[in-house]
Amino acid sequence: MTSSTHGDGGDRDIVKCLPAECLAHIITFTSPSDACRSSMVSRSFQSIADSDYVWKSFLPSDHEDILSGSESWPELSAKELYLHLCHNPVILTNQTMSFALERQSGKKCYMVGARGLEIVWGNTPAYWIWTCLPESRFGEVAELQYVWWFDIKGRIESRMLSPATNYAAYFVFQFSRERRGFSDRAIDLRVQLEKSGEEGAESKCVIIDPPDGVPKPYQERGDGWLEIEIGEFFNDIGVDDTLLCSLMETDGSFFKAGLIVEGLEFRPKITM
């Protein structure tokens, strides 16, 4: 590209060659990152790259239906809405699930909060208590007092997720000060489609809280929580199934305590 194509002078030549509607349509075949870069070409090109026509193409086609289940908020442009959903998960009206977008691709991300999970003895205060934490996106999280059997399951319908997308499921949690039992036994982590049963299931055993000097299986999220990847799955086009994730340790030899559960998150697995 020669120097004459930089700045507003070169851009006017481009706009003269192609109508704004055509340029906007071309940008929709790129990516949100490319659209942002295009908006920096010039002031006149910015109005095209930032248009609702472009950014509505990056939003999920059913985003209005999804957001109808959330609290009302100020009207935003399509680009403002996209960026807001990338950085601010929206709590849906049942208060047990949040929705967000993956920044690079615009694919759907969901977290099923602790209240939406099946926690064995979760409603027995001697074993689990429900509490509020300022760093949680949900109104309540589950704090483990003690159990001998650790058994948590979470489900999400595959049709809710973006099709033709490789996803990973993550267990989002914290340790409390009085934790114990998670360095003695490995937890069985499993992801599977319920209709398929064991076929195609992915499972692994992980010691959640290994001793000092042993690599930790979790990552810090930057929002005050830790996460462990439970497993990956490909959400194929046309598949109508229920994705089941489970965390289980039922040996019963050691009691477990001191884990705080925020939820299970499902987000696209991005390869760099």
Results as ranks from 00 to 15, higher is better:
S203D: 08
D65P: 00
I14L: 15
R177M: 06
H6L: 15
G238P: 02
F45N: 00
K216T: 13
T28S: 05
G7N: 09
I260S: 06
I228E: 00
G9H: 11
D184L: 13
S246V: 06
D240N: 13
Y218F: 15
E118K: 13
W73E: 15
M97D: 02
S72W: 08
A126E: 12
V15T: 10
Q46D: 09
K108V: 04
D223C: 06
G116S: 08
I237V: 15
G263Q: 02
L85Y: 06
L117D: 09
R115E: 13
F234M: 02
I27W: 03
C36T: 01
T93M: 13
D52G: 05
E21Y: 05
Y170P: 01
H63L: 06
Y146S: 14
E157V: 10
V141K: 03
W130K: 05
E140A: 11
Y167G: 01
H6Q: 13
H87M: 08
R103I: 01
S72I: 03
F233R: 02
K216Y: 02
G231Q: 07
S105G: 04
I207V: 15
H6W: 13
C22A: 12
Q192R: 14
C245T: 14
K153S: 14
R179M: 00
W55Q: 07
C245K: 05
D13P: 00
I48D: 04
R267M: 05
V214A: 05
L264W: 01
C245Q: 10
S162P: 03
